[in-house]
Write a protein that binds this DNA or RNA. Structure first.
Lengths: 341, 341
DNA sequence: CGTTTTTGTGCAATCGATTGTACAAGATTT
DNA sequence: AAATCTTGTACAATCGATTGCACAAAAACG
């Protein structure tokens, strides 16, 4: 096991110059003579010198690291966002430290603390399901820590964010159902305190109103957006009058539950029942029938929020941006909503 | 914007003691009097003191950070492994820096360099598809950098690893097909230089041999394990005699391609054709018919490899472990392979 | 009571890179 | 030729935490 790392001091010693000269030579400082500069750079290359990031970070007060907080890494959407961020950040010389909250607010607070503690240059996050109060985030923003949100953003806090237009996505989806001829459309909604679910509900309402259909509160069923939630919603839907002929779900997994339950009850999709989901989870392409859903452009979202951070980094600390980007969602029409009339 | 961080010097000044005493007090050094210790700890609490990780890392020569290299973060399997690692590492006070190779060997080399450069305490990786030569990894191991592999391990290098028993998984899957009465089983294989695909092929061969069926090379079709690869394999299969009655695919996406192509050709699954995949991708549960596959225990794999690292960290540098853990895969039997004879 | 041991704390160096300032030698100006 | 400017480099402080060593004061010992 050899000495692990070459330092500027090693190079300095070998060339009989000072470490500061080496440091400057490596940065192409104009005051360093061409001869010295070249000698240093050559030797650095020869020894494959790599600056110690920790030392440099300590001195410069920035770590070239971005903290990322997501509810779950293994959720397709988040994994895709992270993938997008990674490509951008890595090529800009940044690292990502990733934490998951598992939807718990105390995990979220812990993650924030450790990231601040690690002196990350920014935190990019999507808030947990449990997070209703945002004080723990606001405190950091007030301290001058750069925070960016994606997807599940927090409107009360002055911070940059990237999300898709959930309202539009929902609106397009419901309008599509209406165009197909479905009339009695139930909305299986997510928790109302999360902005994205609220926006989806609003998009639903907008489309329904626009079609001149009266809005009935009992047609909005809030459930956990998992297959079981979908099944529960289906049960509740069975008791409604008139009988629903379509379900617009705020999540694909809930839509899947509806699909399964409909099959169990002998209802044919899409003929007896139209179903649309939200998120374009990979499985939606392969269900029988394949499922209409809304793509959230996860990869692009990651790229955009990472870009936003990078643009911001270069500015002075005082003008921390708070641009709010909204991506257009894409309605993916598949068989579960195609009435061939 | 307030001063961002409290340091031991701030605490020292306030208590009129030296920074070194503060440092020791915080570490519960026995030489520090109870009175001082308590005063320091109280003040630290009051100001919410958090040690500067970079400073401490620089001094101690370890960063409390683990580098993770995966082909793609957004692949379900890898996202799950990472999720498992995260839970273990975070609660042990470690961070994860994540890099993806996108299956490119030059990305892999770049990631290794930046991670070494970031002074991570270990690198946990799954090698890229393109990686055939392992010198760039061996060099690091020889330098004393701790490397652990998971899933796509590199047998030539002395390093700890966690993988599932791919051979067994394949064997169980093919034996299951045989038990169901399928005889002419084609194997859609992955790239042979990747250990896991080789192992799956061997498992297939073992089951076939055990059943007393002659092994025919043309029945092993190497393809890219995506739906299109599956379709291509299906085409090739159509030309074989006798006609295959089942496909064991080294990946779920290829199995999906076969399923789709079979449907296009009017073949009924599982009656006319049995299909099994590998990986237990989420969608396999929802295809029609649902797909038999092998679960790779991704989350557990992440937990185990992270644990292996943690156990190793505490030991002296000289006895770097190279335990090789093999997890038992789980055959998930679903409809695509259930001949109800 | 003098000597040894223990206890509690501070000093200063260290990790490696960065950067303001100083300073000498050479180049340019007047 | 003296004064000024430019060029090239080194010194030393800094970022914040850690740690070997020194040393004084207190305690324990013979």
């Amino acid at each position: 096991m050899k000495k692990q790392h070459v330092t500027i001091h090693d190079i300095a010693r070998e060339l009989n110059i000072s470490a500061s000269t080496v440091s400057r030579a490596l940065q192409n400082h104009p005051r360093i003579s061409k001869a010295t500069r070249e000698a240093v750079q050559q030797l650095a290359l020869k020894y494959n010198y790599q600056p110690n990031v920790m030392a440099s970070s300590l001195r410069k007060g920035r770590s070239k690291t971005v903290g990322v907080i997501v509810p779950r890494i293994n959720r397709n959407f988040f994994a895709n966002v992270i993938g997008g961020m990674e490509e951008v950040l890595t090529s800009a010389g940044y690292h990502m430290i990733i934490c998951q909250t598992l939807e718990k607010v105390n995990h979220e607070m812990f993650a924030l603390r450790t990231l601040v503690n690690a002196r990350v240059d920014a935190i990019i996050m999507s808030i947990s399901m449990e997070t209703k109060d945002h004080e723990h985030i606001r405190i950091l923003v007030d301290k001058g820590i750069r925070v960016f949100f994606f997807d599940r953003i927090c409107e009360e806090i002055r911070a940059g964010s990237v999300a898709i237009d959930d309202r539009l996505g929902a609106y397009l989806s419901v309008r599509h159902l209406l165009e197909q001829g479905y009339r009695n459309i139930v909305h299986v909604a997510g928790a109302d305190h999360i902005n994205i679910y609220r926006a989806r509900k609003e998009g639903y309402l907008e489309a329904i109103r626009e079609a001149g259909i009266p809005v009935r509160d009992s047609w909005i069923i809030e459930e956990s957006l998992v297959p079981e939630g979908g099944k529960a919603a289906f049960q509740k839907g069975m008791k409604l009058a008139p009988r629903p002929d379509a379900y617009f779900c705020a999540g694909d997994y809930a839509a899947l539950g509806i699909l399964q339950e409909a099959r169990n009850r002998g209802l044919k999709v899409p003929d007896d029942l139209g179903i649309t989901g939200f998120a374009n989870e990979p499985f939606t392409e392969f269900t029988e029938p394949s499922m209409t859903t809304v793509d959230q452009r996860a990869g692009e979202m990651g790229v955009r929020v990472a870009d936003m951070f990078l643009k911001d980094v270069d500015r002075s600390d005082e003008v921390h941006s708070m641009e709010r980007i909204m991506l257009k969602p894409e309605l993916i029409i598949r068989k579960s909503s195609m009435l061939n009339k």
